[in-house]
Amino acid sequence: MITIKNSEFMTSAVKKDQYPEGGYPEVAFVGRSNVGKSTIINSLTNRKKLAKVSNTPGRTRLVNFFLIDNTCSLVDLPGYGYAKISKSEKLAWGKIIEEYLMNRPDLKKVVLLVDARHKPTEDDVLMIKYLRHYSIEVIVVATKLDKLKRNDIRKSENIIRETLGLSEEKVLFYSALTKENLQKVIDEIFSGILPETV
């Protein structure tokens, strides 16, 4: 069992020369603008305002770094796929995400967040293909589990697996509201990165 005891904001960046130096292993979170990325980060770290939650999707335009237990970094990447922004902004966000993924030797895993209620989007498919191409370990977490009926969970998992081309990989379902599956998600994401407690 892995327990997160301390978490703190480190810095925000838009390009690689602004990334923090520290050599900590990193876990990056990526997903659509309205998938609840900031909410799940706050929920996993048990901090209400660690990551800023916006009422307007697509507001996070920075790469945000958080230090976890003085042992590793949690990295919040800009959300993608928000319809109400210009093509030039979409391209800029894509470049920010790509620059991070291509230039962080300390990156150990990427957590791809998808909405449990909906079929993953074309952007989600492109993202997982990109991560596979560069042999980056991916963990898929389906958010908003509390919005699903119990008998729809298996159906949702099958749709996510088929759309993203998953075979052996796990799909973890999580609710930031009820914290259902909290320990399971923390253990999977931080396995091999944070120490286990007895």
Rank of each mutant, 00 (worst) to 15 (best):
R32T: 04
T60F: 11
G36P: 05
K37Y: 04
R61T: 07
N46R: 15
G36V: 09
F66I: 13
T60A: 05
V75W: 07
N42A: 11
L50H: 01
R59L: 09
T39Y: 03
S73Q: 14
S38R: 09
R47N: 11
D69F: 15
N42T: 03
F29W: 07
I41E: 00
I41T: 01
N42P: 10
S88M: 08
Y80V: 05
S73I: 06
I41V: 12
V30R: 06
N34M: 05
L77D: 11
K87F: 06
S86N: 13
L74D: 08
S88N: 14
Y80C: 01
R47F: 03
D69N: 15
P57L: 11
V30Q: 08
L44S: 07
Y80R: 11
G58N: 02
V30E: 09
T56G: 00
L77A: 06
K37G: 00
V53F: 05
S43D: 08
T71I: 14
T60G: 03
K84G: 07
N46S: 12
G36C: 11
L74E: 02
K52I: 06
N42W: 02
G79L: 02
C72Y: 02
G31S: 10
L62T: 12
G81K: 05
V35R: 03
L50Q: 03
Y82F: 15
G36D: 09
K87R: 14
R47P: 01
T71V: 15
P78R: 08
S88K: 15
K52D: 00
L50A: 00
R32Q: 14
N64F: 07
F66L: 07
I40Y: 05
S38L: 13
I68Q: 03
N55A: 11
N55R: 06
I85R: 13
T71H: 05
I68P: 09
S86I: 08
D76P: 02
G58K: 01
I40G: 08
K37N: 06
K52F: 14
T45V: 13
N34E: 06
N70F: 09
T39A: 15
F29I: 10
K52T: 13
K49H: 07
S43Y: 00
T71G: 04
V53G: 04
N64W: 05
R32F: 10
D76Q: 05
A83K: 10
V63S: 06
R59N: 11
K84V: 03
D69W: 15
N42V: 05
R47I: 04
T45L: 11
N42G: 04
G79T: 03
L62D: 14
I41R: 00
K87H: 07
G36Q: 09
V63A: 01
T56Y: 12
P78N: 14
D76S: 01
S73Y: 14
L74C: 13
G36R: 10
V63G: 01
L44V: 12
T39K: 01
G58W: 09
A51E: 00
I85D: 04
S88Q: 15
V63Q: 05
L77T: 06
L74F: 06
P57A: 10
R47Q: 13
S38M: 12
R32E: 13
N34A: 12
K84Q: 11
G79I: 06
F66K: 10
K52V: 08
R47T: 10
N55S: 15
K84S: 14
R61C: 00
V53P: 04
S43M: 00
K48T: 09
S73T: 13
F29N: 04
L67R: 15
